[in-house]
């Protein structure tokens, strides 16, 4: 049979010509429609797949919230015949009341906020100064010093903990019996005042500021100091906001170092409080999961709010830094 590629469906030539490929027996229209259907199917599958994964990602958060509203009997399955419920039978707001009354939530929270504010402020200051020196001033050995700085980034922080512990102890900040709150704060703040990565980040940002602005400031008789604070810092505020948020999150998440240096539980940070023994029933030795989850929700929510408001800065900062804190 002769292959017929063009099918004159009508005797009259003109717009009625349909192109058909006989081998597959489908017209272009059919192929187009088939492709469309295939596309719809694949899009649907993509959505199903991605929504399923998104549910998996969210599930721990959901579980955290509903567990925080359950009674202990329901969490352990005692009151539900050994089965887990996907929604609390009795909504226990009292779990949250307990967190504020019995668990020293406010103490841990204020510790965390004080440490976060002061370590962030210190980091911002040192970072701005160093980045300014590297970006704008020219001095002997600049490149060498910068290389040394960058090389310290290779030292894992975990390696320094051991020696830093000895160092802060030799400063007299760790005293097992009578460590004061100020000493505990100093232990948690001072060692984290420098971040080479942030210096690097800000230096790159400073370098992008055109020279003309500097010269204009000079013409106006402004000093370097003025120029730094009135021109450079405002221009680079997005980077500084990113640094601030990441640093805050770092303090929010820090656990091991406060655990090591704070000899009194009342000086520790929020993560330590969560993990601590406040939620274990002293009589039965059973962990009160409901209370613990309520505290967990209270710790997670501020971070979420921060994320909602500063999403752009966080994602930008993380994309470039790839680290917390």
């Amino acid at each position: 049979m002769a292959k017929e590629y063009i099918n004159f469906s009508s005797e009259k030539m003109g717009p009625q010509i349909t192109l058909s490929i006989k081998e597959s027996g489908r017209t272009v229209e059919m192929i187009k429609r088939g492709e469309k259907i295939a596309k719809i199917i694949s899009t649907t599958f993509t959505y199903i797949f991605i929504l399923a994964l998104a549910l998996l990602v969210i599930f721990p958060f959901y579980w955290m919230i509903i567990t925080s509203l359950k009674s202990l009997d329901e969490i352990t399955g005692m009151s539900t015949g050994g089965y887990q419920t996907y929604f609390p039978q009795i909504v226990m707001w009292s779990n949250y009341v307990y967190v504020f009354q019995k668990f020293d939530f406010t103490t841990y929270m204020s510790n965390t906020i004080v440490v976060a504010i002061f370590s962030t402020l210190g980091t911002l200051l040192t970072t701005v100064f160093a980045a300014f020196a590297f970006a704008r001033l020219n001095f002997k050995g600049r490149e060498t010093v910068f290389m040394v700085f960058l090389m310290t980034m290779m030292i894992p922080g975990e390696m320094m903990v051991l020696s830093n512990y000895i160092t802060v102890a030799s400063f007299g900040w760790i005293d097992s019996e009578n460590q004061t709150l100020i000493q505990a704060y100093a232990c948690m703040i001072v060692p984290f005042w420098v971040s080479v990565f942030y210096i690097y980040l800000l230096r790159q940002n400073f370098k992008q500021i055109p020279n003309e602005l500097y010269l204009a400031a000079k013409v106006d008789g402004k000093s370097d100091w003025h120029y730094l604070w009135k021109v450079m810092v405002p221009l680079c505020s997005p980077t500084l906001i990113s640094i601030t948020i990441l640093k805050f999150m770092g303090t929010w998440n820090s656990y091991m170092w406060p655990q090591l240096v704070c000899k009194n539980e009342a000086y520790q940070l929020i993560s330590n409080g969560l993990r601590g023994s406040s939620f274990t029933n002293a009589d039965t030795g059973i962990t009160e999961y409901g209370y613990r989850m309520a505290a967990t929700v209270l710790v997670t929510v501020p971070l979420f709010l921060l994320f909602v408001f500063f999403r752009k800065y966080i994602m930008k900062g993380v994309g470039r830094a790839g680290i917390k804190g």
Binding site: L125, A133, N138, K140, V145, T152, I155
Partner: peptide
């Protein structure tokens, strides 16, 4: 500007250098 302000640059760098040497290089 920089070449006549050598000491100034080191002043700007001083906090970082001190902290880095105490809490990063010395520990290493």
């Amino acid at each position: 500007v920089a070449s006549k302000n050598n000491w100034k640059a080191w002043l700007y760098l001083a906090p970082v250098i001190i902290l880095l040497s105490v809490f990063s290089l010395y520990p290493l």
